[in-house]
């Protein structure tokens, strides 16, 4: 499998704070990569650099043969192919669930309304919310909103999905419904980069776990490597806190 995402010596600074420090990471097509680490470790920042919501100070990021970090690249094209799911869902509150899903396909891809509505309904079915197509975000629970947000990202048929703490804002009883949708996606072979603390889920779904601290990758390996035999002291400490 070829590398879908290549992060090469990525550095992101905010004034005198180095949020991401010389991070290199490759993600293969179909790979599910979990990024864990204490808050402020730079994992969300790194993820947000992958679709250039944040710009790197130095280093490169590639998605297949498109260089994200090159200012000349068509960033819109790149973002179409890299779906993102946010911690706070960020659904559009003035649009219904279905309209949230169809907005981008209609206005970015220029697809016909009928076509996208058809597709939108299929996606709603896929995330188990067929009966909610006319609901507005405020009428939906957090878990439902996040599932709609996933469907919204999938509507662009991305080849990569970025999840930025997708379950952190959810009540515990709603976490599972979102993880189930993500699990299905992983099974279907979607390339996924997930920033999350759902260790149980990481064990089941991840191919690779990356531990970050202070803007650096401390350790990387299979879930069993990281969770059962962490080599680095900092990884051990972190896992003790969280498990």
């Amino acid at each position: 499998m070829h590398d879908r995402v290549r992060i090469i010596q990525a550095v992101k600074k905010y004034k005198d704070l180095t949020a991401v420090n010389k991070v290199s990471l490759n993600v293969k097509a179909g790979e599910v990569v979990f990024i864990i680490g204490p808050s402020g470790s730079g994992k969300s920042t790194l993820l947000r650099c992958v679709n250039r919501l944040e710009r790197l100070n130095s280093g490169q990021i590639w998605i297949d043969d498109a260089e994200v970090t090159n200012p000349k690249s068509d960033i819109r094209k790149i973002r179409e192919e890299a779906g993102m799911v946010f911690q706070s869902f960020n659904l559009f509150p003035h649009l219904t669930a279905l309209q949230n899903i169809t907005l981008a396909p209609v206005s970015v891809l220029g697809l016909s309304k009928d076509e996208t509505i058809e597709k939108g309904r299929r996606l709603l079915e896929r995330v188990g919310l067929s009966d909610k197509e006319d609901s507005y975000p405020e009428q939906l629970s957090g878990g439902q909103q996040q599932r709609i947000a996933i469907a919204r990202a999938l509507a662009m048929e991305p080849k990569l999905m970025l999840f930025d703490e997708p379950t952190s804002a959810l009540d515990p009883e709603m976490v599972k419904e979102v993880l189930d949708v993500m699990q299905d996606l992983a099974k279907e072979g979607m390339t996924m980069m997930i920033v999350s603390h759902e260790m149980g889920f990481a064990r089941n779904a991840a191919h690779t776990v990356v531990f970050m601290d202070n803007g650096e990758i401390i350790e990387k390996g299979s879930p069993s490597d990281i969770f059962e035999n962490p080599k680095e002291e900092r990884t051990k400490k972190f896992l003790q806190h969280i498990l």
Partner: peptide, 15 residues
């Protein structure tokens, strides 16, 4: 309007 709205729109490929 929360910043996340703009980000979500941009992340979907909107200009």
């Amino acid at each position: 309007v929360p910043k996340g709205q703009m980000e979500a729109a941009l992340a979907l490929g909107l200009s």
